[in-house]
Design a protein around this nucleic acid. Structure first.
Lengths: 177, 177
DNA sequence: AATTTATGTCAACATAGCTGACATATTCGA
DNA sequence: TCGAATATGTCAGCTATGTTGACATAAATT
């Protein structure tokens, strides 16, 4: 890198004032969210490492445990990833006996996803440290404070556009998700 | 996949009860955090796509703008990634004129990072929609509610272990981060 | 019978992490 | 002053997880 090209404090309109509240932007919360989520994720990450799984597996196991009998389509819609992305991790979870598939009772094209005992245990093991962290963060707060947190987090989420629910109607605009 | 191996609802200890509050775990907040963060990130993602940058660039631009003159070591410590990971995105940001390096005035080994005008603009453009989203999510909340949110988010973050600050002392246990 | 839907799968690619190894400039301590 | 430690950069290769596009199969729908 020839080392000397870095020593030119004169050029290029360098700014040395921190980007602050002056712009009417709440950088504090932006950063709190970044750090909070990073650490929130780190607990399960450590556990997953041992099992040879990753975050993608975590999400799948979580939602399947939260809603046993979920269809693949519904899961894709929740995760907002492509079926090819899902396929990779889902296959591993099925092969390792964490999740089982059952043909839909009404519509036999569907593959409804259920957790096995093993899958349930993993989901709980992953959720436990996260729950602890949340409990700790909620410690000082009263009922109204806790409610405020939920309101805030809900407000951060994009509104659901269509009547997604369990209806079909997904490939209308050509996106194959 | 021979299609028929999926149709075996009998085998393997399938659970069909949702994983719920019974286990003393607050799944609601866990999920709210997941969805909230995902959507929170999606705003800047859309902007970054146009510039040909990714989330990694976002973080670098953000923190350099928040603390101009940051050393590479300090940035690595904030982001908790390896220097090789940082190098890739930092190089691109420097080459494209979003960030400039200046040799440290005291310690000339350091490369202190500063935003250029361009870098500042990008950081602001990325923060703006996030700030809007936060404002919207805070809308209903009073001062105490907002305070609760900050307390909560702060409580979610791992406590700082050592006197990290600007001190050296990083390679003690052999990890080269 | 033809079409649509739900799902799976192959192949190729991009981003952003990681480890390991090594280079260079600078500072610091003995 | 010299050798070790430090701050940073860089090469090479690996992994995880996302993406597109194309195509296959079974079941439902029209």
């Amino acid at each position: 890198m020839s080392r000397d090209d870095a020593i030119k404090p004169e050029s290029d309109h360098i700014l040395d004032r921190p980007m602050g509240e002056t712009d009417g932007i709440d950088f504090e919360i932006i950063e709190l969210l970044f750090f909070a989520y990073r650490d929130f994720i780190s607990d399960p990450d450590a556990i997953l490492d041992k099992s040879g799984f990753g975050r993608a597996h975590h999400r799948v196991v979580h939602f399947v445990n939260r809603e046993p009998g979920l269809t693949v389509a519904a899961l894709l819609d929740t995760l907002k990833i492509t079926k090819q992305s899902l396929a990779r991790v889902l296959k591993q979870l099925i092969d390792s006996g964490y999740i089982a598939q059952v043909a839909g009772p009404e519509d036999r094209r569907q593959r409804r996803l259920f957790p096995t005992e093993r899958g349930r245990e993993l989901a709980l093991a992953l959720a436990r440290p996260q729950s602890c962290r949340i409990d700790h963060a909620m410690e000082g707060l009263g009922e109204s404070g806790r409610a405020a947190v939920k309101t805030f987090l809900s407000g951060m989420i994009n509104p659901v556009t269509r009547g997604a629910a369990d209806d079909q109607d997904d490939t209308i605009e050509g996106k194959e998700r």
